[in-house]
Each structure stands twice: as structure tokens, then as C-alpha cells.
Amino acid sequence: MKSFKNHISLVIALVSILFSLQVFTIVERSIDAYKENLAQNYSLVVVSQKTLQKKELLDKITTLASIEQLSPDNVIKKLNTGISKKNKELLKVTLPKFYKLQLKIYPTPLQLQRLQKELLRYPYIVKVETFSNTHDTTYKLLLLFKNVIFILSLSIVLVTILLIFKELRIWQFKHNERMSIMGLFGAPAWLRSAVLFRLAIVDALIAFGISFVIFSYFSSSAWVSEQFANIGISVIVFDKVYDSLIMLGVSMTVSVLLASFIVLGHKEEV
């Protein structure tokens, strides 16, 4: 029970830090996946006086994924009020060309403005429709969501760090006495602090283990997958190699730093 109490406070603090970091990572991945999804469904419409050189444009503007000419038939159909076949053909030739431009990425409003300017530099391009109102709203919503989650995660991390500092004072008090006694019998610094570092490493491993189990469960949960599927994206909730290494690294760093602060702050009794 005593040993459990020694571990629990730091373990809880470490788990909450790891939890916040991983939740932020998941949100970031979801937003990226959603942006990719949006990019697939998002396109610009360009009106040109002559046929566009697709290859040239694709080479010069790297964000463009594809250029597709839109058929003028729909427009002509609307004007189909007693126009002869000959005039219809003439109209087809004289009407400006409409193109649908798809992008590789979901652009920021600034990227979109730049792209529009770049396209309008071609003298034969007379209009670029970016549907910026719809785009801006969606983009800002995503940004807002990301920022809210970031602030939330940061707040949790900050509060936890404050809790860890409080815990540090308790540890300092608890371990100072033992370290001083060991020092009085000539224990070198590494031996005096060995117990502390062992405790810190064990706590880091326990916190990592708990977080690993929680996120492994989430990543295999049908409910979680369903939530992502509902918005048409697929996200890696927990990468068992990459995310595990990050979690283990953060957990170890925080607890070893904590132990180091105590060792550095240790003053021998006189």
C-alpha cells in the first residue's frame, strides 16, 4: 500500500500528460485526414479565352493535381431557343473555355489568394472562381477546432506540470533524508540518487504501460473507427511503434528530469 502510494501521484500526472499529447496528435491527424478529404472534393473553376496548356500549368503550379475541361453543352442547352445547328457550333467555338482545377492539398485562405493571383497572371485566363466563402468557413472551423484542442491539451499539460512540481517538493522532503544519511556513510552521488532514479524510471514505465493499453484499446475500438468513418476519414489513432516511442520518451524525460531536480536541489545536512 505504502509503495503504491509512492508511485500513484507521479504515475497519474504522467498518464495525464501522455493522454493530452496523444489526444492532440489524434486531433491533428484527424484534421489532416479531413483536409485531404476536403481537397479531393474541392476544386476551382477557371474561365479562359483559349485552351489551357495543361502540362505547362501543372509543371508551373505544383499545388495543382489535375485540370479538367468542362463541357459547354449545358450552357448552350440553356440558350437553346431557336438557335440553328450552325450557330450552335459557332457559339461552341466562341464561348470561353471552362476548366475544373483540382488541388493536391486543402489550401489555406492565403494559399488560395496566391493561387488565384498566379492563375490570373496568364492573359487568357479571365476569371478564377475559388468559392472562397465556403472554403474560408470550413477552413476556419477546422482551425478553431484544432486550436481549442491545442489550448485544452496545453492547459492539462501545464496543470499537470504544476502538480508534478508540488510532487517534487514532497519527493525532495522524502528522499533528502535518505540521501543525507547515505552521504554520511560515504555513498557516492550516483548511489545516493539511485533509488530515486529507479523510482522515476519505474513510474515512467508504469505510466507508459497504462497509456499504451488505453490507446491500444481505442485504436482497435469499433466505436472509435465508426466515428471517423461517419465523417469519411480513416485515422491512425495509435501507432504502436512511432507513438509508443514518443510516449516512452516523454514519460522518461519528465520523470528523469524530476529526479534530477531533486538530486541537484539536495543539500547535505549540517
Binding site: K2, E177, I181, M182, G183, L184, F185, G186, A187
Partner: peptide
């Protein structure tokens, strides 16, 4: 100092035992 202390035996009035 650590080297010297390893060859000393110290008894304190307040015992200085490691409680845990």
C-alpha cells in the same frame, strides 16, 4: 570525503535510520 566516511562508523543521537 566520501572515501573517508566509508571508514567511519557514526552513531547519532537521533539515530538517523532510513525510515522506509
Amino acid at each position: 570525503l566520501n572515501f573517508l566516511r566509508r571508514h567511519l562508523g557514526i552513531v547519532f543521537q537521533d539515530y538517523k535510520l532510513v525510515k522506509e
